[in-house]
Amino acid sequence: METQAMADARRWLAERGVVEAGDGWVDVEGPDRPLTANEVAHSWAGEVFTDEGLDVSEQVQLAFGLLDLLDDYWVTCEIRFADRGSQGPLPADVLWDGYRRRLEADRDADAVTYSLWADWFEDRETAATAFAEVLGNDVGHVVAEESDAPLRRAGRVLACAGPVPWPVKQKAYDIAVRLPALHGSLFKGLLAGYHDVYGDLEPMAALALLERLRLPAGTPFLAELRSVLAAGHRNHYRSPQAWDNVAQPSKE
């Protein structure tokens, strides 16, 4: 179902000669072949923030409409460039409402979660604000109310929060663990916190949290994660042999 944001983005592109055709897109001034969504995103997502006919809030809303329409990670890159660039920051309420809405939507959110993980959460200058805005500020209400859309957002954020500094996310983790529906996502976040190059966790605190999770029997990597945390290891890349030793025990 096409939303109003998608319709606005489609109309904005059409005004510039870019229309959807078949399985691709056609640009009246572009190559004589269909364009992919990624090509359209690279050509036009940044242009949204130069449209003088729109105020900044409208530009952000239009950019998110393009994200919905194209479902391409590059659109999120242009949003971040605009926020962190010389003309930024973007209006925080509009920016983070855009992220929250898409995290709550009952549709694929891979571009949004990848954007959070690889761009906002791995950057120590933005991780705390980004995590607070997409979950930390209201995690207590989300857990207490147990509404489908906010829980969908919480699960997606927890699963990709591995790079968020432990002191920033620990309180949210401690609240989220009260709700078994979020335990699978918490486990994914802990596992990423250990394995991601920029992952961050405190071994003993993470182990205590891990022991509270109700996970299916035979959950892959559960035993390995428990072992390395119990041994005090913080990150796979600091001591890769630790994981290898428990994942592939000696046959001697």
Results as ranks from 00 to 15, higher is better:
Leu95Arg: 05
Pro31Ile: 13
Pro34Trp: 09
Glu15Gln: 07
Asp110Gly: 10
Leu225Arg: 02
Gln4Ser: 07
Val40Pro: 00
Leu213Trp: 02
Ala127Glu: 03
Val139Ile: 14
His183Phe: 05
Val75Ser: 05
His195Arg: 15
Ala176Asp: 15
Thr3Ile: 09
Glu15Asn: 12
Thr219Phe: 05
Glu2Trp: 08
Leu229Met: 08
Ser57Glu: 14
Ala144Gly: 10
Phe121His: 03
Val164Asn: 00
Asn137Gly: 03
Ala63Asp: 03
Leu209Ile: 02
Thr126Gln: 07
Gly98Trp: 12
Arg11Asn: 12
Pro167Leu: 09
Pro165Glu: 01
Cys77Gln: 04
Val56Ala: 08
Phe64Asp: 00
Arg226Lys: 12
Lys251Gln: 13
Arg101Thr: 06
Tyr73Ser: 11
Ala154Trp: 03
Phe221Ser: 15
Val168Gln: 02
Pro34Lys: 04
Ser43Gln: 11
Arg107Asn: 11
Asp119Met: 09
Glu104Arg: 15
Ala161Leu: 06
Glu29Pro: 00
Ser239Leu: 08
Val94Arg: 06
Asp68Val: 00
Arg212Asn: 08
Leu70Val: 00
Leu225Ser: 01
Trp96Met: 14
Ala154Thr: 11
Leu151Gln: 07
Val139Cys: 10
Asp51Gly: 13
Ala45Met: 11
Trp25Asn: 03
Leu222Asn: 15
Gly30Asn: 06
Gln170Val: 05
Leu213Pro: 03
Arg33Pro: 00
Pro34Gln: 04
Arg107Trp: 06
Leu103Ala: 04
Gly24Val: 10
Gly46His: 09
Trp74Met: 08
His233Gln: 13
Pro167Lys: 05
Pro89Phe: 08
Gly46Arg: 07
Ala247Pro: 04
Ala37Arg: 02
Asp93Thr: 15
Val246Gly: 05
Leu210Glu: 00
Asp138Asn: 07
Ala176Gln: 06
Gly155Leu: 01
Thr126Ile: 03
Arg11Gly: 12
Val112Gln: 02
Pro249Ser: 08
Leu67Asn: 00
His236Asn: 14
Tyr194Asp: 04
Glu15Asp: 15
Ala21Phe: 04
Pro249Asp: 10
Phe131Tyr: 05
Leu116Val: 05
Leu54Ile: 08
Ser227Trp: 04
Ser239Phe: 05
Trp243Met: 08
Asp108Asn: 08
Ala128Pro: 02
Val40His: 01
Leu213Lys: 06
Ala37Tyr: 02
His233Val: 15
Ala181Glu: 06
Glu211Gln: 15
Val143Tyr: 04
His42Pro: 01
Leu225Met: 08
Leu13Ser: 01
Gly65His: 01
Thr76Lys: 06
Leu66Arg: 05
Ala5Thr: 02
Leu186His: 12
Pro150Lys: 13
Asp174Ser: 11
Ser115Lys: 04
Tyr99Ser: 05
Ser147Asn: 15
